[in-house]
């Protein structure tokens, strides 16, 4: 299956970006083969979490692995039937590995407030 990981860089060695909506990249990883593509997250003025949610839904991700996810992004992902895993740290490869062996705990809701990733 395809998972989207918020990432600070373009490779599997990159660190997981703690921000979902304001992540630098999303790495779309095929969990069986570890084939991946990097999608740059353009961001924008407002509603970054919603826009990011839409990007990963449209890319066909079935789960999101990230650090923090706010209420708007969480609602968007839920509408798209995308599973959400928050508080994920380490490299993208490590995150995917933990997802595969079932040691990540699925989020029951948002784990931060809106705008948590903007530094305000």
């Amino acid at each position: 299956m395809k998972v989207a990981v918020s990432s600070q860089g373009r490779t599997l060695d990159s660190q997981v970006d703690p921000r979902f909506g304001r992540a630098a990249y999303f790495l779309l990883v095929e969990t069986e083969t570890l084939e991946f593509t990097a999608i740059e997250n353009a961001g924008g003025q407002g509603g970054a979490g919603i826009a990011a949610g839409k990007i990963v839904i449209d890319a066909g991700a079935q789960a999101v692995l990230t650090g923090n996810c706010g209420p708007n992004a969480e609602r968007t992902l839920r509408a798209g039937n995308v599973r959400l895993f928050t508080d994920v740290t380490g490299t993208v490869a490590e995150a995917v590995e933990r997802f595969k062996n079932g040691t990540l705990v699925e989020a029951s809701g948002p784990n931060v407030q809106s705008h948590a990733g903007t530094g305000n």
Partner: peptide, 23 residues
């Protein structure tokens, strides 16, 4: 609707439009 909205206040997903009132 999602394409015209500059604030991501309405987002079409799975043939339903999600509305974020406060945005």
């Amino acid at each position: 609707c999602g394409r015209i909205c500059q604030y991501h206040a309405i987002v079409p997903i799975n043939r339903q439009a999600l509305v974020f009132d406060r945005l």
